[in-house]
Amino acid sequence: GSQACPGLRRNLISLGVLHDGGMVFRCDRDKKTMRIMEDEVTVMIGGRTASHLYKLQGSTIAGG
Score class of each variant (00 low, 15 high):
G21M: 05
H19K: 15
G7Q: 08
R10C: 04
T60M: 07
T33R: 11
L18N: 03
C5N: 13
F25I: 00
V43T: 04
N11Q: 14
S59V: 10
K31Y: 07
M34V: 15
L15I: 04
D20K: 14
S2N: 12
C5S: 11
M23I: 00
H19G: 02
K32E: 13
D20L: 08
G16P: 02
R48W: 01
D39G: 02
N11I: 00
A4E: 13
C5L: 13
T42C: 14
R9I: 11
C27D: 02
S51I: 00
L12W: 01
I36S: 05
I45C: 10
T49Q: 11
G22S: 03
R10Y: 05
H19F: 11
M34G: 05
D20M: 07
E40C: 07
D39L: 03
T42P: 10
S14L: 04
C27S: 02
G7P: 05
S14V: 06
G64V: 10
C5Q: 14
G1N: 09
S59Q: 12
C27W: 05
M37E: 15
K31W: 08
L18C: 06
R10L: 06
L8Y: 04
M34D: 00
D20V: 03
H19R: 14
V43F: 03
L15N: 01
G21F: 05
E40N: 13
L56C: 09
S59R: 15
G16N: 14
T49D: 08
S14H: 05
G46F: 01
M34T: 07
G64P: 02
R26P: 02
G7A: 06
S59M: 13
R26W: 06
R29H: 06
K31Q: 15
D28R: 13
H52T: 09
L56E: 01
V41Y: 06
S2F: 05
D28M: 12
A50K: 14
P6H: 04
I45A: 01
G63L: 10
L12P: 00
A4L: 11
L12M: 15
A50N: 10
K32N: 09
G47W: 04
N11W: 01
M44R: 13
A50C: 02
P6V: 06
D30M: 00
G58A: 08
V17Q: 10
G63E: 07
T60H: 09
N11P: 00
F25Q: 04
